[in-house]
Amino acid sequence: MLRMKLPTILVGVAVSVLWVAAPAQAEDITVTIDNFAFTPQNVTVKPGTKVTWINHDDIPHSVASGTQGLRSKALDTDQSFSFTFTTPGTFKYFCGLHPHMTGSIVVEGTTGSAAPQ
C-alpha cells in the first residue's frame, strides 16, 4: 500500500508546481471570423497567450499555416480552435479553404532578439 502511495503523492506535487509556475500574465484573446475575414487581422501578444479563433460565418473556414500545430480542422459555424503561442516571432496564417483570408499573430520577444519571420 505504501509503495503505491508514493508516486501518487509525487504526481500531486508536480501538478501543483506547474499550477504555480504558470501565472496568468498573458491574457487570452479571441480572433473572430466574420464575412470571410479574421478580426483583428494582426495581433501582438505576450508569450504564453492562448488565441482562440471562432467562426461566425455560414460557411466553414479554417486556420492554416506553416507553423507546427497552427492548423485547425474545418470550423463550421460557431466552432472554434485554440492555439497557445509560446515562442516569440511572427506567425502568419490563412484560411485553408479561402486563402485570400490572412492574418498574423506577433508574439513579443522576451530578450529583445529579432523575431523569426
Binding site: 502568419k92 490563412f94 479553404l97 486563402p99 485570400h100 490572412t102
Partner: peptide, 8 residues
C-alpha cells in the same frame, strides 16, 4: 488543394 496563404 494545397492552397497558399494570400493566394487563390
Amino acid at each position: 488543394v494545397d492552397l497558399k496563404g494570400g493566394g487563390l
